[in-house]
Design a protein around this nucleic acid. Structure first.
Lengths: 225, 225
DNA sequence: ATGCGCTTCAAACGTATGTTTCAAACAGAC
DNA sequence: GTCTGTTTGAAACATACGTTTGAAGCGCAT
């Protein structure tokens, strides 16, 4: 499938296997045999397994960050000065993800799963790579979030952003498994787009929650300094 | 540190290393050298690496599930018939987690991180083990959530529970790092209890969000079947 | 003191991994 | 056709892994 070019075949196979099984659990031999390519081809074309992982991310993250920049540009223009709302910002993000040109029907879920893995698996080299390659759209997203939630203190906002990231990364990183469970338990089919569409309102509501922190229910012993 | 019993030393070292690096990325040799124990001791006492993973989970999950059952009993009794609210249910859970006797100051965050890994890393054997060992408190929590959110459809509720799990596991699993960042950036100290106290309102609000799914903002092309 | 479980130990086993090697095959320019 | 730089191929490399082995050490009842 795809092109018969060795580099692309390796990237396709690696992408899918990484998404399915994680990085350490995927060997170069799995990748090359799935790609129907000689084992040495990976080291020849990419240099090392880590460099292959970077290449897999770069292939979809580079166009995605461009799309995202455009979406943010358009959004800020449409708001003409006023800061975009939280909902608008979150939708801009998810739409950019969903609208990305996909290599195949699994494209978006592989995309999400890889992003989740990047956060979850503590691969030092990966985090470093992502931070220095894609810090700009990330900071911009953070700035938009800040402007969209002026009522929050810096500390509150900080933690709630972590909660959002967590819900997203976690859900997306196991979205296939979760979809399967839902399919078996309730007989419901779900697309990634639907998951995203359910996630956004959840996040927005959580982000804008009234802060009930200081009044836990009666009987609680949790103390807040 | 801890007792000088081999089994416990292995469990302590394994727990910490697993939480830091994941399961596949942690070798038995790392564990045994951290525990200052002979390599063969793991297979002697536990049988295999997978069995060791199970033992690590069992050691904290068994007392925790007992504590949780008690908390739920007490909660349901206090509500005398009426289903507990979402806030009450979530507080019962987080208090049980926070109040668990900790082996050390990192206890709660290791606990969370391991739970997150269990969900995230696609270790088939682990998921099977957890499902058949701890299905009861899990189902009970699910039932309480269901009764506390009768307005949600089963599918909505399912996904929102995943979102909650994700936000919790992710945040708690990296809470040390996140606390440090906050300390450096804003000069604010934070305890795990405070994080929990911020998390619960976020989760409750997300869980009870109005379902804006079908009315994404103008310009959106996300379609929901 | 002896014998008997249980536990520890150093060493090895077999297998799988990422990487390297070097010859063969190939493509395009002259 | 021949040369040149690039790509593929089969094989080997060194290393790391989980697991097994068999002897040594230990505590304790007899």
């Amino acid at each position: 499938m795809a092109q018969s070019d060795t580099v692309d075949r390796i990237l396709d196979a690696a992408e899918e296997l990484f998404a399915d099984r994680g990085f350490s659990e995927t060997s170069l031999r799995m990748i090359t045999s799935k790609a129907k390519v000689n084992l040495a081809a990976v080291n020849y074309h990419f240099g090392s397994k880590n460099a292959l992982i970077h290449a897999v991310f770069a292939r979809f993250l580079t166009p995605f960050s461009a799309t995202l920049e455009n979406a943010f540009d358009e959004l800020e223009e449409r708001c003409s000065g006023k800061p975009p709302t939280l909902n608008q910002t979150l939708w801009a993000l998810t739409e950019s993800a969903v609208r990305m040109p996909q290599r195949n029907e699994k494209g978006i879920s592989i995309f999400m799963r890889l992003l989740g893995l990047a956060y979850t698996q503590s691969q030092g080299h990966l985090r470093k790579f992502l931070e220095q390659e894609y810090s700009e759209p990330f900071s911009r997203f953070m700035r938009l979030l800040k402007e969209a939630t002026p009522q929050l203190s810096s500390v509150d906002r900080y933690w709630r952003i972590q909660f959002m990231l967590g819900a997203t990364a976690f859900t997306m990183s196991s979205s296939d498994a979760l979809r399967d469970i839902l399919q078996n338990k309730l007989g419901v089919e779900t697309t990634v787009q639907e998951i995203a569409a359910r996630l956004v309102p959840f996040l927005a509501a959580g982000m804008q929650a009234e802060d009930a922190m200081l009044i836990p229910p009666a009987g609680s012993k949790v103390s807040v300094a």
